[in-house]
Design a protein around this nucleic acid. Structure first.
Lengths: 138, 138
DNA sequence: CTACAATCTCTAGCAACTAGAGGTTCGAGC
DNA sequence: GCTCGAACCTCTAGTTGCTAGAGATTGTAG
C-alpha cells in the first residue's frame, strides 16, 4: 500500500491535487490507516495516471469523469468515448485557430512599432483603435 | 454623459464587467448622479475600448494595467510597451505549439480507434497508458 | 404620477487547482 | 521503547476574469 506522497511521486500529481480529485469524486476514497492516513493500491496508480494523462491532453474534469466511467465497462460500444475525444479535438482546433489569428495581429503590431516614443507607438495605437486591426473579429 | 448600459452597448463590454473593471482599478470611478448611478464620458469609451481590445488579444489584466499607464505618457520611450507585447507574443506562441502537439496526439488517438467495444478502444487505451503516446511530454 | 426597465450593492459561484494554518501520525535511528 | 522530524491530516481562503443572482433604489416614458 502506498502513502499519498508515494502515489504522488509515481504519478507526478501533487498531493493536494490528489486529495482534490477525491473530493470531486474523480478518485475513490481510499482506505485509511488507524491514524486516518490514506493508503492506495495499484488500481489507484492506474486511475490517477489515466486522469493525469487526460488532463495533460486538455480534457476537462467532466469529460474525464465520463471517460473513466466508460473505461470501466469494456463491453460497451466505444462510440461515446469517440464522441468525447472528437468534441474535445474540435475545441482544441478552434482554440488554435483563434490563437493563430491573434498571434498574427500581435506580430504585426510589434513589427510596425518604430521603437520611439509612446505617442507614436504602434502597439499602443492599435490597442486604442481596433479599426487598425487586420481582422474584424478576435 | 452615458449610463453604464449605454457605455456597455458602445463597447460591447457587459455591465457587470465594467463595474468589475472599476473595482480592480482598470477603469476610474466615474462621477455619479444624485441617485448614485454612474455617468461616463468619451474618455471612458476610449479607455474601455482599449481594455476590451487588449483582452481580446489575450493580454492579462496586469499587462493591461501597465499598457494603460504607458499610454498616458506619450513622451516616454515605448520600449516597455514593446517588451510587454513581445512577452505576450512569446506566451501565445508557446501555447500554440503546445496545443498543436496535443492536437496531433488527439487525432492519432481518434483515428486509430476501431469504433468497436470500449475494451479495444484506442482512446481509452492511450489515456490509460502514456507509453502509447508519440511524444514524451505534453 | 405611475409603471417598469435599468441601475445599485453585495455575496457567491465557476474551473482546477494552490497555499497556508494549525494539528496529528508515521517510521527511522538510537 | 522513545524521540523527532518529515509527512500526513482537515479546513479555509486565494488565484483569474469574470458571471449570476438577491433585494433594494433610481431614471424615465407615457
Amino acid at each position: 500500500m502506498l502513502s499519498i506522497g508515494e502515489l504522488s511521486r509515481r504519478t507526478n500529481v501533487k498531493v493536494p491535487t490528489i486529495r482534490y480529485y477525491e473530493q470531486i469524486g474523480l478518485m475513490p476514497p481510499p482506505p485509511r490507516t488507524e491514524g486516518k492516513q490514506r493508503r492506495y493500491g495499484a488500481d489507484d496508480v492506474s486511475r490517477l495516471n489515466f486522469i493525469r494523462h487526460a488532463r495533460d491532453l486538455g480534457f476537462d474534469v467532466e469529460a474525464i469523469r465520463e471517460l473513466l466511467e466508460l473505461s470501466e465497462k469494456p463491453d460497451q460500444s466505444c462510440a461515446e468515448a469517440d464522441r468525447i475525444a472528437r468534441r474535445h479535438m474540435v475545441e482544441v482546433e478552434r482554440r488554435i485557430e483563434q490563437l493563430t489569428a491573434l498571434q498574427a495581429e500581435l506580430r504585426r503590431m510589434v513589427e510596425e512599432c518604430s521603437h520611439d516614443r509612446v505617442g507614436e507607438c504602434r502597439v499602443i495605437q492599435v490597442l486604442a483603435d481596433h479599426g487598425q486591426c487586420a481582422h474584424e473579429r478576435h
